[in-house]
């Protein structure tokens, strides 16, 4: 059983919902990522998504764009990020880690080399935003043989046929994009999300995480009522941005705790 599966099974048994934060690796600095990951796990997060910065993050809104630019200015690359995961794993062998990003940095490293190194470093899942199922057959096979769950996105625009296809190839969990838009957009409609999820449940037994546009305890709790996991990204990035390097770790933990409490209440 993969770490991600085990995590969801334990949560189900405890009747709890997963809280999944997203931070961009290397923001605000390369040495901040591991402390931030430990702080997030300590504050009650269940699975950690680490963004691999890319120069052209087409699916991301301004907050994640800025965080990527900050990380790239510090020269953070994919092999540095795998090093951060290895460092995190020396103190935490339980919390699953999912790398999220775009295809080109992975292809520049070489997909075989990346998947093997990611597996060896303790990465549990990979979500490549611009790898739809029909373009990544080889990558999917490599992930499977290296024990990495490939997570796919579904969107409000996904047709039933598309949901079936993604359900067939997805592993770990399905990531439902709550709205038509980029990350951090402000127009999430919870009843619309609730209306879409039954179509996905009918096609797959995988847990469903919902992200894009969740910003506080109230929206997290409302989404958790219909989904298995809540993903929060841009809001955390904004907190890191506002806090500055000295206070980022504390402020991020302070942001997460009430959200965790709301999910458990």
């Amino acid at each position: 059983m993969s770490r991600i599966e085990a995590t969801f099974e334990a949560l189900r048994a405890a009747r709890r919902k997963a809280l999944i934060p997203y931070i961009t690796a290397g923001d605000p600095g390369p040495d901040m990522t591991v402390p931030l990951l430990h702080a997030l796990a300590g504050a009650g997060c269940d699975i950690l998504e680490i963004g691999v910065p890319f120069s052209d993050p087409m699916a991301d809104g301004p907050a994640i764009q800025r965080s990527s630019e900050r990380a790239l200015k510090k020269g953070v690359g994919l092999s540095d990020i795998l090093g951060m995961v290895r460092e995190f794993r020396t103190k935490d062998s339980v919390t699953p880690i999912v790398l999220m990003g775009y295809a080109n940095p992975i292809e520049a490293m070489g997909v075989e080399k990346f998947v093997a190194a990611a597996g060896a470093s303790g990465v549990d899942g990979v979500l490549v935003v611009d790898y739809p199922p029909e373009e990544c057959g080889d990558f999917a096979a490599l992930c499977a043989s290296n024990g990495i769950d490939q997570v796919f996105l579904l969107a409000p625009t996904s047709t039933d046929a598309r949901i079936q296809e993604v359900a067939r190839v997805g592993r770990g969990y399905l990531y439902y994009v709550s709205l038509k838009g980029v990350t951090g957009a402000g127009h999430i409609d919870i009843s619309d999300v609730a209306a879409h999820l039954p179509r996905i449940r009918a096609a797959s037994k995988l847990p469903i995480g919902v992200g894009f546009g969740i910003r506080d305890a109230a929206s997290a709790k409302a989404i958790a009522a219909v989904a298995d996991a809540v993903v929060i990204g841009s809001r955390i990035i904004e907190e890191i941005e506002a806090a500055g390097p000295e206070n980022a770790v504390k402020r991020v933990a302070d942001l997460i705790r009430p959200i965790r409490a709301a999910l458990d209440s």
Binding site: A103, L153, P156, S158, T159, R162, V166, V177
Partner: peptide, 22 residues
């Protein structure tokens, strides 16, 4: 049929746009 010119081309987009491209 899927837009490939040998190894090039294709459709590498996030899920939200898949239906619009179809």
């Amino acid at each position: 049929a899927r837009g490939h010119f040998g190894p090039y081309g294709g459709s590498f987009v996030s899920e939200t746009l898949t239906q619009a491209l179809d």
